[in-house]
């Protein structure tokens, strides 16, 4: 009886999924196509088109991408480490210690989730100038280190850890920091993994703030470097730009494909979508 209804429903679902997947995938396909073929085949799709890596060589030679990659890597690592340390300590304090003003402070942390970081850009720039940090990598990182999302996420995870485990560890002689490092952090590993992915991909792709706060080659991350590279009016070809784009997003893409299963699992366990 329910078979016809079932299959119509299924058909709609499947075709919608395919449509969305294709829409998402097409630009990437186009980028791959142009990057691996000579410029003459930019808008001319034939299977016999010759494959080439020249576009990559050209892009790599045209701008200091090695430097940009190094900057991005440094930036992402710095942010991730600082966020882990700060958010862990803050979340632990919110879960384990009863101090006056705890609820108010936590509400403030939640409020931070509602504020778009872009709104604060001018204010942040002023602060960085005051600290004399403009055009440095810490300047790109600093506004993002105290992450409301991270604190919230870790607090929720820590709260699901049974209180007896904490108590047992304390009776066995662990100090507050010992309990944190031996019980809370190991049990929150999936959350750290999931949050790490979100943080890394977000800051790898972040563009506007680094563009504003950096103005030399030595500090620019790949996103800014790429945009400057492709904005040159001297007629750089699409194939070269796409090759550069693939290069910059490549590491993240490969990393995600490799760890896909772990990421999906840890997202499920961490309870975020």
């Amino acid at each position: 009886m329910n078979r016809p209804a079932f299959s119509v429903d299924r058909l709609l679902n499947t075709s919608a999924a395919w449509l969305l997947a294709l829409l998402w995938f097409l630009p990437l396909c186009y980028a791959v196509w142009t990057a691996f073929h000579p410029a003459a085949f930019e808008a001319h799709f034939v299977l016999t088109a010759p494959l080439t890596l020249e576009n990559f060589e050209e892009a790599w030679a045209a701008a200091p991408f090695a430097r940009y990659f190094f900057n991005t890597f440094l930036l992402v690592t710095l942010i991730l480490i600082c966020q882990f340390v700060l958010c862990t300590l803050a979340a632990y304090a919110f879960v384990r210690f009863d101090f006056p003003g705890r609820t108010i402070l936590f509400t403030l942390v939640l409020l931070q989730l509602l504020v778009m970081p872009d709104i604060l850009m001018v204010e942040n720039y002023k602060t960085m100038r005051l600290l004399d940090l403009v055009d440095t990598i810490p300047a790109i990182a600093l506004p993002y280190i105290a992450s409301g999302f991270g604190i919230f996420l870790l607090r929720q995870t820590f709260m699901t850890i049974p209180k007896e485990l904490d108590e047992a560890a304390r009776i066995e002689g662990a100090s507050f920091m010992g309990v944190l490092s031996k019980v809370y952090i190991p049990l929150a590993k999936p959350t750290y993994l999931a949050y790490g992915l979100v943080s890394v991909s977000h800051h790898w792709n972040n563009f506007l703030w680094p563009l504003i706060v950096t103005n030399s080659e030595d500090t620019r991350p790949v996103t800014v470097g790429l945009s400057i590279f492709s904005a040159i009016d001297s007629g750089v070809e699409w194939s070269v730009i796409n090759a550069a784009t693939l290069m910059t997003s490549g590491p993240l893409l490969i990393g995600f494909l490799l760890f896909q299963r772990q990421f999906v699992q840890s997202f499920m366990r961490a309870g975020i979508k």
Binding site: E164, E167, A168, E172, K182, P186
Partner: peptide
């Protein structure tokens, strides 16, 4: 005195074994 300084051990109803 903190629990760790009382020189005692405890078994919990839920056992409180560290799952990791």
């Amino acid at each position: 005195r903190a629990p760790s300084k009382r020189d005692l051990s405890m078994v919990f109803q839920s056992y409180a074994l560290f799952p990791h």
